[in-house]
């Protein structure tokens, strides 16, 4: 046996067999040690089945019967993960009401349970980013100052310095973040919906994502605008408009009052 092995060492197929073993070993180690992306924690087979029914009834007309997408109509959803589905559906962006430059946020179409079922179905098609858990998005655990630095380097050019939103080309826009939940903010960074780039965990670490959430939540604290009404937080344009309307308006009114007497 040993002798047979020893003689086989020099067999001309030996390198191929060795290579196969090596590949198996690397693949095996990767399968165990690779970072666990994906899979909504408590998704049962029932959820997947229900989700598939909902998908066929509400999404398949654009995204295709097996979520493979249709050219120039809708993207493939294979591998987008539960986070993406949860973001798009729970903010009302999907199903899309009309073909527009960008899917607007609107009334939510599905219950929380249905949304989770849809997410479970899409996540079952291929691994993708999972919905973040409570701790990952807890603003109390984040550092708002670091969040400010991350936000203004990566996000402010589209979303404005405090997340009031801004314009993109051809009718697209970066929406205001004032009403987004921490989970939605995290999912948006993770999945890059619509025109937004994906900020994966290498790019902005999960901790930094939480810092960004802390910074954004800081903007809607009761004392976030110590100077008074923030006028939409969109900067000098609204300030200029109000100095004409309120300032000049009131003072021209006063001038008319003072100058009205006689002649």
């Amino acid at each position: 046996m040993v002798k047979a092995l020893a003689s086989a060492r020099r067999h001309r197929f030996a390198p191929v067999v060795l290579m196969l073993f090596a590949l198996l070993a690397v693949g095996g180690i990767y399968a165990v040690a690779a970072p666990q992306a994906a899979v909504a924690d408590s998704a049962s087979q029932d959820d997947v089945t229900e989700g598939e029914k909902l998908f066929q009834a509400n999404c398949a007309s654009c995204h295709g019967p097996s979520a493979e997408g249709r050219t120039d109509v809708a993207p493939s959803l294979i591998g987008v993960g539960a986070a993406s589905v949860h973001f798009q559906v729970s903010t009302g962006r999907m199903p899309m009401a009309a073909n527009a430059p960008q899917a607007p946020e609107k009334g939510v179409q599905f219950s929380t349970e249905q949304t989770a079922q849809l997410a479970a179905y899409v996540a079952s098609l291929a691994p993708g980013p999972a919905i973040p858990d409570g701790e990952q998005v807890d603003p109390a655990l984040g550092d708002a100052a670091n969040g400010m630095l991350v936000f203004r380097t990566n996000c402010a050019m589209c979303h404005n310095a405090v997340g009031a939103g801004g314009a993109l080309s051809e009718g697209k826009y970066a929406p205001s973040l004032f009403n987004s939940t921490p989970t939605e903010i995290y999912e948006a960074m993770l999945t890059g919906p619509q025109s937004m780039p994906v900020f994966n965990d290498e790019n902005i670490t999960p901790e930094a994502k939480r810092d960004v959430i802390a910074y954004l939540m800081e903007q809607r604290a009761d004392d976030s605008s110590p100077g008074g009404a923030n006028l939409g937080a969109i900067g000098p344009v609204s300030e200029g408009m109000w100095v004409w309307i309120i300032g000049m308006g009131a003072l021209i009114g006063a001038s008319v009052w003072i100058g009205a007497k006689s002649s």
Binding site: M148, L149, R152, T153, A156, M157, C158, H159, N160, A161, V162, A164, G165, G166, A167, A174, Q219, S225, P226, G227, G228, A229, N230, L231, A233, I234, G235, P236, V237, E239, G240, M241, W242, V243, W244, I246
Partner: peptide
């Protein structure tokens, strides 16, 4: 009425630009 809340923009750094970057009227 709040005006020019500079802490919203942060300290100057030549790399970032925020959306809605305009001068006074």
């Amino acid at each position: 009425l709040a005006i020019n809340s500079v802490w919203a923009y942060g300290p100057y750094d030549p790399s970032p630009v925020g959306a809605g970057a305009q001068p006074d009227w």
